[in-house]
């Protein structure tokens, strides 16, 4: 059900019919908090083009992670419609969401959550092993991604034997393993210093652009937004776009 990425050469061709990677239509998320309620997202509308990179900028607690979680099928919305790569996931059951996550989205979490007892390469391949296994193609893809991410010589290292930036790159590779329509980066550089953060952003941009994959990059750091095609601001659950 993956929509094939368009060749970049014909990308400008507007006649080519392409579904947006993400379409949020009046999405609302309310967390119950005892008797009160926390409105984490208030009627969010957002469209991310099929190969667009959007920076999501906002202060802490503004609803960035909530938005990503809903877009990635990790959290269900209180109201509104969510369409990812042409797939309407609004009414999906837990089971359908599980396969949706397995096939259609990639995540890079705020805290790098690699499997501690697996090597860098195995941390990529694990994505394939969780679903319907493809075996050899997945291994080739993992090797290719590690190569692109400059980790070829670290493939056999455990996360504990990698630097913070290297771990972040492994997490990026893992997010790309299932050839997703949309990759969600939740503060991918917050744990890195400025220079390393910029290197990682550079890498994310080249990976996204070479594949024509859409991405949302969450940050509260205005300095890295220029790596993205455009920025969307969020304050107290309200999007400005």
């Amino acid at each position: 059900m993956t929509i094939p990425s368009p060749p970049t050469a014909v990308h400008f061709d507007t006649a080519l019919h392409l579904e947006p990677a993400l379409h949020l239509d009046d999405v609302r998320k309310v967390y119950p908090m005892g008797d009160a309620e926390v409105v984490a997202l208030a009627s969010a509308n957002l469209t991310v083009g099929s190969d667009e990179m959007v920076a999501l900028v906002g202060p802490s607690g503004s609803g960035k992670t909530t938005l990503c979680s809903i877009a990635g099928g990790i959290l269900s919305a209180t109201a509104g419609r969510i369409t990812v790569g042409g797939q309407d996931i609004t009414g999906f059951s837990d089971k359908e969401l599980t396969s949706f996550r397995q096939e259609s989205v990639g995540f890079v979490f705020q805290a790098v959550n690699l499997v501690p007892f697996l090597t860098a390469r195995e941390n990529l391949i694990v994505v394939d092993e969780l679903g319907r296994r493809t075996g050899a193609p997945a291994r080739e893809r993992a090797d290719q991604l590690l190569e692109e991410l400059g980790l070829a010589d670290r493939a056999k290292n455990l996360p504990s034997q990698l630097s913070g930036g290297q771990r972040q790159r492994v997490a990026i590779g893992r997010a790309l393993m299932n050839e997703p329509d949309l990759v969600l980066f939740d503060e991918p550089t917050s744990a890195l210093d400025t220079e390393l953060g910029e290197q990682v952003m550079e890498l994310i941009r080249s990976e996204m652009k070479s594949r024509g994959t859409a991405a949302i990059v969450v940050t509260h750091d205005e300095r890295i937004t220029h790596f993205c095609d455009r920025s969307v601001h969020i304050i107290d659950g309200h999007l400005d776009a």
Partner: peptide, 16 residues
């Protein structure tokens, strides 16, 4: 629990 959460987010079923 943390690891399982990540695996689920990556698309692992509870049964797996």
């Amino acid at each position: 629990a943390g690891l399982y959460g990540v695996l689920k987010a990556l698309g692992a079923r509870s049964s797996t």
